[in-house]
Design a protein around this nucleic acid. Structure first.
Length: 492
RNA sequence: GGCGCUAUCGUCUAGGGGACUAGGACGGGGCCCUCUCAAGGCCCAAACACGGGUUCGAAUCCCGUUAGCGCUACCA
């Protein structure tokens, strides 16, 4: 693994930015992670860099294959493609240990024999005195002989990093200078007593090995950064540029979690969102292209992306705006793009088979075009599509109560409507409109008094596309059949 | 508690010392269009957290306060 990365790094143009998304596979891919991945990806695509994916599976107890799959699927659905093979952190154990050993040998780290119980006890005491707990470095004061004796005796130990005096600071891409006095950084553990690495060591070791030049991640990692910088220094590696992105919160201002509803990217996929809309929305959470620009395609986002537009403040995830944005994208993309997104859902809902849709492709695309204007999700389209495919429709009681209030009158009206429609020679919107408006005039009623009962007959609903375009879409045969059915129901 | 980060309409944001009567968008309200619903168009309500500086002038720069958030593990 090490040689592979070394090789890769040597072959890579050193001016080429290398970024990575490094989720731990302990759940699903959530929107915060997706947003982090997106910004890393945008940066790489904008500036001709590489976007790598690393699965941080060192916590064997919590990591699952299922979760790893969910991350892949989420990124794939969003179209966030990564370069090179996926790196599994767990596969790099030997290098992590070697790095820890190096740190021990160069004196940057030391063995600590304090047990978790002892540490816990001292932590409690510090707490009782209302003091901040700091490891007191007692094991760092052990003589080499004593350390050797304990190791020989088989006493378990962790490896701690000795944080030097001074200040650790860096120039963050979004926050500019951030500084931590080293006295506030605890001598942190880098290797557990079982010899496995702690997060900060594993991350730095891997980022060095992968040649990462820009570390862009959530700002919950700000306080890890000084520790990681110390590690880079002690390991003699060049520092990457750090960029800490603001968090995403729920509507109540608290960290986004399951009780805020859907937080998994997969949820939105199943709700019938367009990945382009999801990305567009996520991009605007913590970044702005400047000015009033909001709706963007993916190529436009790449074009417009820059570090200056990065926001420092946490953003609140507003599902309403996401829905609106999806509606915008639904109407914006071409029918050819839209069709493959809807079709699986149409088939899944058993409205039609794939063959039927292929056979009537032109008709089908026209239908999608008719329905998408009043849809915010793909599921909206599917739901509205029912009356155009299914033989039987359900009559919404509210629609019946409102528009077929007097069954006798409704029946007479629909009968006349049927008669007028049956006589129409050219089944197109203008002809149909003339016909029905003439009928309304003859009966001395407002045209709407005909349209609404007819709408219920055709769809069972109060809501639909315009009555003429709908008649055209359904065609004469299905339209008349629907009216006959309605007549039967009314005459009962 | 300690350390760190942040602070413009309810929400996402524009804003880089005078162009600010603080702009856009979502959401809310109203009107128009209209066969219903959307879409679209027009209009309205709605914010610079607070207090000090710096400056002729501050949403913008500095300091403090407050609030929110994050971290403070042999988790990641």
């Amino acid at each position: 693994m090490w040689t592979r990365f070394a090789l890769l790094h040597n072959m890579t143009d050193s001016t080429k930015p290398r970024l990575r998304f490094a989720p731990s596979p302990t759940g699903y891919l959530h929107v915060g992670g997706a947003r982090t991945a997106l910004f890393n990806w945008l940066y790489a695509r904008k500036f001709g860099g590489e976007f790598l994916l690393r699965i941080e599976d060192t916590d064997k107890a919590r990591s699952t294959d299922e979760s790893t799959r969910a991350i892949f699927e989420g990124l794939e659905w969003l179209g966030l493609d990564w370069d090179d093979d996926v790196v599994y952190q767990g596969a790099n154990l030997a290098r992590h240990q070697a790095d820890a050993r190096r740190l021990l040998e160069t004196g940057a780290a030391y063995r600590c024999f304090c047990t978790p119980a002892e540490l816990e006890e001292r932590r409690r005491e510090a707490d009782a005195r209302k003091e901040a707990f700091r490891y007191d470095r007692r094991c760092d004061r052990l003589t080499p002989e004593e350390v050797e004796r304990r190791v020989a005796a088989g006493m378990p130990y962790v490896v701690r990093f000795r944080v030097p005096e001074g200040v650790t600071d860096w120039n963050d891409l979004v926050h500019e200078r951030i500084a931590f006095p080293n006295k506030d950084i605890d001598d942190f553990v880098i290797l557990r007593s079982d010899g496995t690495p702690i997060y900060n060591l594993a991350v730095v070791s891997d980022d060095i090995a992968m040649g990462i030049t820009i570390v862009m991640r959530g700002d919950d990692h700000i306080s890890n950064t000084p520790k990681q910088i110390r590690l880079y220094r002690a390991l003699g590696a060049p520092l990457p540029t750090f960029a800490h992105l603001p968090m995403i919160h729920g509507l109540d201002g608290k960290k986004l979690s399951k009780r805020h509803g859907a937080t998994a990217v997969g949820d939105y996929q199943h709700y019938g969102l367009l990945p382009g809309a999801m990305l567009n929305f996520l991009a605007l959470l913590g970044w702005s292209p400047g000015g009033d620009r909001e709706i963007m395609t993916i190529p436009e986002m790449i074009e417009l992306f820059n570090v200056d537009g990065l926001q420092k403040k946490a953003a609140i995830f507003d599902p309403k705006k996401l829905e609106w944005m999806n509606g915008q994208h639904l109407s914006m993309i071409s029918l050819e793009e839209l069709e493959p997104r809807v079709t699986p859902k149409i088939i899944e809902a058993r409205l039609a088979t794939e063959e039927e849709l292929v056979e009537r492709r032109d008709w089908y695309l026209r239908l999608l075009d008719l329905l998408r204007v009043r849809s915010r999700t793909l599921d909206d389209i599917v739901n509205q599509a029912r009356p155009y495919f299914l033989d039987d429709i359900e009559y919404d009681p509210l629609a019946v109560a409102k528009n077929w209030k007097d069954p006798g009158e409704a029946s007479s009206l629909l009968g006349d409507t049927r008669g007028a429609l049956a006589k129409v020679e050219v089944w197109d919107a203008p002809t149909l409109e003339t016909s029905l408006r003439t009928l309304a005039e003859k009966r001395g009623i407002a045209a709407g008094k005909i349209f609404q009962p007819l709408r219920v007959a055709l769809t069972g609903l109060t809501v639909s596309p315009g009555i003429f375009e709908m008649l055209v879409q359904m065609g004469p045969s299905l339209s008349l059949k629907r009216i006959d059915k309605a007549l039967q129901k009314l005459d009962l």
